[in-house]
Design a binder for these strands. Structure first.
Lengths: 295, 295
DNA sequence: CTGTTAGCGCCTTCAG
DNA sequence: CTGAAGGCGCTAACAG
């Protein structure tokens, strides 16, 4: 007859809230919003609620979050979307007794994530295999507050792979962005105007940046891939339609998988939580080709 | 000493949860994720929690949501992100006794939103004022489940404005997309290949679609704006860097404002909730120009 | 197997 | 102004 139990009362009586928290550094960036969606799909299916806990850039004291929402028993478990934390915060999370799983690499916790190092190796070797020798990198750097593991891994993997192939890392081809489209545009504009010898390919640490580079190249009439190959990583929703070659990964599935482990754990399966390596695939589309074509 | 109250207990005792629900049709589309971010900023500042209630496309029964989460007193108030609902759902929302505010137009409720009709008029008149006579429209249509007001408003405003200016609406220039980048690419490809006379300008009902049209035009070497002007609406985060002319609006601020009204209302201000018209502005960037330039 | 009762932990009220 | 007690609505354990 339209009656529904009060969750506060049942929560008080049982100690369980049927709510899972999602700790996210951003809500509106591609990877994060997709991962949230994935978590939501799973929770939805099992009648759990999703509490969004945004550590977002708007200068709020993160500490309050950690002390308040978490421990207040408002959530039965927590999904942490890849972000690196201060040791004190990590300690806090360890102290909290609720099950925890990360999406993306988070030191010291189980989680689901692709092998970013390996994926970047594959990307770099693909470019090298195509015959490129003059390869630039557009790496991503986060505001230190949200200091992720991912950019570091991708950067290290790129450089190691280049060196292993005996190729040089020219300083003027080491571009830096912040994972946004705009920073890709800026980096490309700088590269095209700097008067330095142009690379034949550029590896970008995210599709958003790669799309920026592509847009700027096209705007200037630079032919892609004839004059410049562009390779991204992530497979952003714009990438297929833009023809961007990239390394695909599926954050929705990753979020779903993380939530699923948590739910199983809450159902009593002690062994449910483990570290899962998510798949990735190189997608050759239209922005990469052998440099020979250019002559 | 590290003690924090149990929210279930205090919620039970007081009847208030310090949690606000956000009902969203999508999480990872630009407008929605930004609006969620805006709501979050405000809630964060006032120590409220945010419960994400996604009506997402993954075929879950919406009804359960309405009956469960809402009435379960898990939330003190609700933000509805623009989505049209079945009359039964609307009725449900009216029945729920908690304060409710929408972001974007939702029939029968107070909310904050731009005047989509007027904004589209401004956009269309801007193109006309530039001297364009052959103007195409790429309208957005949603899967009916999520049948919004916005696409209809924008479509009607475009057509009315064209007619008022004595311009014709050629059927082959009435393109349809689904608000995604990919649909913009597809529509543009169709237009360029169809062999019909090409319009000198195209108005797109969202920036995501406009960016798709722009990418496809540039890919084919069609000069923008010399041969084709492209105008969007929204000011997506990629737009500035891509040079896309558009109508700017700020969903973050809209979400923030909605949350703020709700919070005031919960603080006892009976008159806090009203309908607010959000600002918009025409941004002339590089994708629009007078058609004369083309000769 | 069904019906009853004692808390869950906090807030608020009322008495001291 | 400080302190004790009842009850918010449910669940789980226990008794019948």
């Amino acid at each position: 007859m339209g009656y529904v139990a009060s969750s506060a009362a049942s929560g008080l009586a049982t100690g369980r809230t049927r709510t899972i928290g999602v700790l996210a550094p951003y809500v509106s960036r591609w990877f994060f919003s997709r991962a949230i969606e994935g978590v939501d799909i799973e929770l939805h299916a099992q009648n759990y609620n999703l509490m969004l806990i945004n550590l977002g850039g708007y200068g709020t004291s993160r500490s309050r979050l950690f002390e308040h929402t978490m421990l207040r028993k408002q959530i039965d478990a927590l999904v942490v979307l890849c972000l690196a934390m201060h040791p004190s915060e990590l300690e806090h999370l360890h102290r909290v007794e609720i099950p925890l799983v990360s999406v993306g690499p988070v030191e010291g916790f189980h989680g689901v994530s692709i092998d970013d190092y390996e994926a970047t190796q594959v990307a770099t070797n693909y470019l090298i295999g195509l015959g490129h020798r003059r390869i630039a990198q557009l790496q991503g750097v986060e505001a230190d507050e949200m200091n992720f593991e991912v950019p570091k891994l991708r950067n290290r993997a790129f450089e190691a792979t280049m060196l292993a192939a005996g190729l040089e890392l020219r300083p003027e081809w080491e571009l830096v962005g912040d994972f946004t489209f705009a920073s890709g545009v800026r980096a490309a504009a700088w590269l095209f105007e700097s008067g330095t010898e142009r690379p034949t390919a550029i590896f970008c640490a995210s599709d958003e940046m790669a799309l920026g580079v592509l847009a700027e190249a096209r705007r200037r009439g630079i032919r892609v891939p004839e004059e410049l190959s562009i390779l991204g990583i992530d497979d952003h929703e714009f990438s297929a339609a833009a023809g961007l070659s990239t390394i695909w990964q599926d954050p929705v599935a990753q979020g779903q998988s993380a939530a699923s482990m948590l739910l199983k754990r809450l159902d009593g399966d002690e062994a449910a939580i483990r570290t899962v390596t998510a798949p990735y695939t190189l997608l050759q589309r239209e922005t990469t080709a052998s440099p020979r074509r250019s002559r």
